[in-house]
Design a binder for these strands. Structure first.
Lengths: 168, 168
DNA sequence: CTTGGAATGTCAACAAAGCTGACGTATTGT
DNA sequence: ACAATACGTCAGCTTTGTTGACATTCCAAG
C-alpha cells in the first residue's frame, strides 16, 4: 500500500500510515460503543433513548438555553428535537418557560427529577471515562483530547469551545 | 499500569476531576460527528447509510468472513444486518459464496465495485483522521489510542485486538 | 400602525436502522 | 435419526432522523 514513506522520515511519521489510521478509525468505532453503553442501559429502563440523553445533558450544561440554541448544538431539526423535548416536558423532567426579554423564546431547565436522571446518566458515563483516564494516565488523556478536538468540524468546535469556557 | 499516580496527588490527578471528565465526554460526542461526517456525505449520495459503511468496512478488513462473525463484530441482530447485506449483494457490491468446508456458512467478499466504494469511504475518513493526527502529533496519537482502548467493553476489545493483529 | 421576518410549535408522511419473535431450510455433528 | 448450527426471511414495532406545510406570536422597521 502507501506504506513506503521516505526512509529518513520512517520512524517519526509511522503514526500516519494508512494502517495506523485504520486502527484509529476502528478504535473510534469500538470505543464509541463503550462510551454509550452504560447510559443506554439506564435510558432503556426508563423508556428513553440517546436523543433524550443528549437533550438532558446540554440543558443541564446550559440551564435556560433556548430551543434554537440547543438545536444548533445537537445538529438536528427542530421537529426531531421537539418530539424528544415534548416527552421530557410531559414527564416532568424538563421545564419550558417563556422568555422574559423575548417572549418567543422558550428557556429550558431541568426539574428536580430531570436533574436526578442527569446525575444517574452522567455518573455512569463518567465512571467509565474515569476508569479509562486512570488506566491511560494524564499524558495519554491530553493526547486523547487533542486528537478529538482536531477531528471536529469547524462549527462543531466552536460549540465545544463555548461550552468549555463556561466553567473554566 | 504502574504509572506514577501516588506521589504528588495535587497536580497529577487534575485530569480526573468531574469537569475534566465532562469535557472528555463532550469531546467524544462532538468528535464522533466529525468522524462520520465525510463518509456520511458519500453514502447519502449513493442511497446508503452508516450501517452499509460498517458492513463494507469489516468485509474489506476480513475478506471471506462469515455472516455470524460479522454479526458479533457489529453487535447487531442478523435481521438488521441482513437487510443491509441484501441490498449490498443486490447492488453488486458484495459477493456471498457458500462455504466449502461448511456449506451452511456464507463467505462475504467485496466485488470490484464494492472495493471502489470502500476506498472512497475510507479515503475520506482517513483524510480527516490524518489531518487530526498530524495536528496533534505522535505522542498525542498514542494517548488517543490508549484512552479509546481503555474505554471499550471487554468483548469489544477482543474484536478490536483480533483485527489489530491481522496486519501487524 | 401595519407588515415582514424570526422563533417556535404542530401535523403529516417518510426513511434508516435498530429490535423481538417465529418459521423454514440446509447442513453438520453426535 | 436427531439436535444444533448457520443463514435467510416475514411481520411488526421503536427510536430518531428527515421534508414540507402551516399557524402563532412577537419584535422591529417602514
Amino acid at each position: 500500500m502507501a506504506e513506503g514513506l521516505q526512509p529518513q522520515l520512517g520512524q517519526s511519521l509511522l503514526f500516519l500510515t494508512d494502517e495506523q489510521l485504520r486502527k484509529g478509525i476502528e478504535a473510534m468505532f469500538f470505543a464509541y460503543r463503550g462510551f454509550t453503553a452504560d447510559p443506554d442501559r439506564i435510558l432503556a429502563q426508563k423508556g428513553y433513548g440517546r436523543a433524550h440523553h443528549r437533550a438532558i445533558h446540554f440543558i443541564h450544561r446550559s440551564p435556560g438555553t433556548t430551543v434554537n440554541n440547543l438545536l444548533s448544538i445537537l445538529g438536528v431539526t427542530k421537529q426531531s428535537l421537539n418530539r424528544v423535548l415534548r416527552t421530557l416536558i410531559e414527564d416532568g423532567l424538563v421545564e419550558s418557560t417563556v422568555g422574559t426579554r423575548d417572549k418567543r423564546e422558550r428557556h429550558l431547565h431541568l426539574t428536580e427529577e430531570g436533574a436526578a436522571l442527569e446525575r444517574a446518566l452522567s455518573d455512569a458515563q463518567r465512571d467509565r471515562m474515569r476508569a479509562a483516564y486512570r488506566a491511560a494516565g494524564p499524558v495519554a488523556v491530553a493526547g486523547f483530547r487533542q486528537v478529538l478536538e482536531a477531528m471536529m468540524d469547524e462549527e462543531t468546535r466552536h460549540h465545544y469551545e463555548a461550552m468549555k469556557d463556561k466553567t473554566e
